[in-house]
Amino acid sequence: MDAVGTSFGIVRALGVALILLSSGVILIVALRAFKKPEKPSAKWGLLVAFGILPLGLLLVSDAILLGQMKEVTFCGSCHPMEPFVKSFEGLADSTLAAVHAKRHLIPHQQCYTCHTDYALMGDVKAKLRGLRHLYAYYTSDDQQRPKLYSPYPNANCLQCHTGAAKYEESPTHQTISEELKKGEISCLDCHGPAHPGGGEGSSE
């Protein structure tokens, strides 16, 4: 497990401990307040037990879980995604995603890094799509290979490669830089396929 994975495990363990501890506190404070509801201390107790603690825990657990949803293991927990995740492990696989993962060009959260649109609403869109995928996973009998909603945006590649010497100094990239920025030529036209089976660059 890498350093990020370890620290994330610690955060998760802390979250679990915090929820357990707070649930106990909520239970004790609420039950004490129920016995003597008219006392001022009971009102403050209820404010902590019913208001502050649950709201705080809601925010903390949501932050931890939203972080967890960015992990490769999370994406790989649905069967149709297994071939994609496994391709990261096979040494012989030379597809673009596998190379990025194996060389640690993207050291962690590889699926999320490449498949979240680089824009203000990119994260929100990714989460909504995740819900749609889950619905399709359980309601559709046809568990076919997942496809992109639209051609893979070059902006997702350029968010890292723009400014990198190897990218900027390449004569080919210099010639077609405008077309790449406008999305008229896909990075995957030359550097694909991104995953085993290919086809990511086409309009699906």
């Binding site: 998760r12 679990v16 649930s23 657990s61 967890q68 999370f74 927990s77 649905c78 995740g130």
Partner: peptide, 21 residues
């Protein structure tokens, strides 16, 4: 609130797509 926290706890303990969602 306790039921909600319990479900949150389970989601934290089992990092599986279905359970989390």
């Amino acid at each position: 609130e306790l039921a909600g926290l319990l479900l949150g706890l389970l989601a934290l303990l089992f990092p599986n797509a279905t359970i989390i969602f």
